[in-house]
Nucleic acid binder design. Structure first.
Lengths: 126, 126
DNA sequence: CACCTGTTATATATATTATATAACAGTTAA
DNA sequence: TTAACTGTTATATAATATATATAACAGGTG
């Protein structure tokens, strides 16, 4: 079951928080390809926010191939398919944050260990 | 010597592009700890933008301990020192983009290889 | 002293974010 | 066939973020 919460103290926008939390729960196998996700109005009602804000997150998820619309006008989680765009997108973001990490004192080993640690946590959380 | 360019087609803000490019050039050993960076008015003049926009990037770099102000009111590149904040910051960002990469079809090996590839390119570019 | 620095302040314009309503076509279930 | 739901589109408004434009100030430098 999908659980989302908004923290207004974070610098991330509301729709970005929704986006990241849905992505996180797919990555954590909490929700799976083919599963329906709640309607934007339903999420908005629970979080007490406007449904257009939820819709913006959904649009972004759709553009990135993470969710898709069925004929019944329901969004479902897409099957994973590794596109060139996904790889390029990952690499671009990685370069920026690895640069920053190195400049702020982390060495190669710190970086590799952190990444492996994150991956191991994911794999252990099935 | 510091080189910065702005691409208005990118979704990144101008001050973020400046921030990332300075970080990149420190990470690439193009500029080094102790080196002075050009004044915000100088950068702004070359890029034909407002110096407050450059200043916003400088403020952010300063808050993250990447540059510091000397008594002479000149910004210099700080010495690298691995703080807890730097590690936490790196980890938080990594989690979000690794989640997205996995959901978009990349597996553990793709992720590790991409990270190692980025680190190797940095180390070879001295 | 003239010139540079970062900083602060104020004002303005534009873009983004978030909310508020309303309406529409299509699906679903009573 | 209704009634209720869906996503989508449209319009309007408010608040915030981004970028520019000026001006002024304290302090260092030559």
């Amino acid at each position: 079951m999908l659980k989302i919460s908004i923290d207004y103290n974070l610098e991330d926008t509301v729709y970005r928080q929704i986006y990241n939390q849905i992505v996180e729960q797919i990555a954590s196998n909490n929700i799976h390809p083919g599963d329906k996700i709640p309607s934007s109005r339903e999420i908005a009602g629970v979080l007490n926010i406007n449904f257009h804000t939820v819709n913006k997150a959904y649009q972004l998820l759709r553009e990135n191939g993470i969710i898709e619309l069925t004929k019944n006008k329901r969004y479902i989680i897409s099957k994973k398919n590794k596109t060139g765009n996904a790889i390029d997108n990952f690499k671009k973001k990685e370069i920026d944050i690895i640069n920053e990490a190195m400049v702020r004192g982390l060495n190669d080993d710190d970086i590799i260990k952190t990444v492996k640690n994150i991956l191991n946590l994911k794999n252990g959380a099935d």
